[in-house]
């Protein structure tokens, strides 16, 4: 297996899918001549030409809607948002059009497309460019929400998302783009809706997605030194959620901490902890703990930014609390 970056893995997935299916095209701001704002689409214009790799004006609502129409007409668009912060401008097309089109048309029109781009907190870019929106989209019937935490998953999940016949919200992580990992060469598919156990353990379950998976793994190392054996479960797909894998882990460890970068109120952790309470109440030896971003807009100053985000130390502390070791 080759060691490549998260961004190269995404690039491979797109290139492979575009080679096998002429209906797939990539559209977004700076995706072509600039090679991508985060270089995810590096070299794709040269490989596929301007018919299939298309630079747009800065017009999120417009090109998101164009993608919806193209999907309804039978193409398989990949619509890149430079970041998910800007996708708010396109929310009408995602929520009112793409998500509902199949249902609202009595099954006549499909919307097989991927909206993708960088999400989560970036570095030192303040309130409008550092936010996690997976809970917004995960709330909406008709959408699938996918968030890879490492390069191999990035490749396999993106390929699966492009082949999926529904609208997929694919949220990458800006900080993770440079991460290096082993990635299978050639065609590689990670099925949607399947969680992955990133570390096996017996004392506490840490459920974490996207960048927080890495934090949870670091926390697990720290906990191991304190004699606490943590299991790390990465849902990978937020919606639909592989509840069974999470519940099976909790049945084994009897304790759970759910970690997310996004805000606490009505977040992904709220959903997951509610489901553990509903379905695994008797398995629990302690209330489920949540580690989340603080309920404030992201500040700029380095110390404030760090304080606003979940930290490895907070995860360790939360795990100790649910293990009665605090």
């Amino acid at each position: 297996m080759a060691k490549i970056t998260y961004r190269e893995a995404l690039n491979q997935a797109m290139c492979n899918e575009m080679e096998r299916d002429d209906r797939v095209f990539l559209m977004g701001e700076e995706v072509a001549e600039y090679n991508g704002a985060y270089k995810v689409s590096q070299g794709m214009l040269d490989k596929f030409g301007p018919r299939r790799v298309i630079d747009t004006p800065i017009t999120e609502l417009g090109f998101a809607g164009l993608g919806v129409g193209a999907a309804m007409a039978g193409l398989r668009p990949i619509i890149e948002f430079m970041t998910w912060n800007f996708a708010i401008l396109a929310a009408d097309q995602i929520v009112n059009a793409a998500a509902k089109m199949k249902y609202m048309t009595g099954g006549q029109y499909d919307c097989p497309m991927v909206f993708r781009g960088a999400g989560g907190a970036a570095a030192r870019v303040s309130s409008q460019h550092s936010q996690a929106f997976e809970n917004w989209y995960a709330n909406i019937p008709g959408l699938k929400v996918v968030m890879p935490s490492n390069p191999a998953d990035a490749k396999g999940l993106l390929a699966a998302s492009i082949r999926d016949n529904d609208t997929v919200i694919f949220i990458e992580n800006e900080i993770n783009y440079g991460d290096i990992g082993e990635v299978p060469e050639g065609e590689y598919i990670v099925p949607l809706g399947k969680a992955d156990i990133k570390r096996v353990g017996s004392d506490v379950t840490l459920v974490a997605h996207s960048r927080m998976t890495g934090y949870a793994l670091l926390a697990a190392e720290g906990l191991a030194k304190q004699g606490i054996d943590a299991e790390v479960v990465d849902p990978r797909t937020i919606r639909p959620l592989d509840e069974a894998t999470i519940l099976a882990s909790v049945a084994k460890t009897n304790r759970a901490v759910v970690i997310e970068e996004g805000w606490r109120f009505a977040g992904i952790g709220a959903e997951i902890s509610a489901r553990i309470m509903e379905k695994a109440f008797d398995d629990l030896d302690a209330p489920v703990a949540r580690v989340t971003g603080k309920d404030v807009p992201m500040p700029y100053a380095a110390n404030l930014e760090q304080y606003a985000l979940p930290s490895v130390a907070e995860i360790v502390e939360a795990a100790r609390v649910v293990c009665n070791r605090a």
């Binding site: 809607g65 164009l66 129409g69 309804m72 007409a73 193409l75 097309q93």
Partner: peptide, 17 residues
């Protein structure tokens, strides 16, 4: 107004195909 970008997308597909 929602249908206007969508209609533009249908036209995009026509040109693409």
């Amino acid at each position: 107004g929602e249908q206007v970008p969508i209609g533009t997308g249908f036209a995009f597909a026509s040109k693409y195909n």
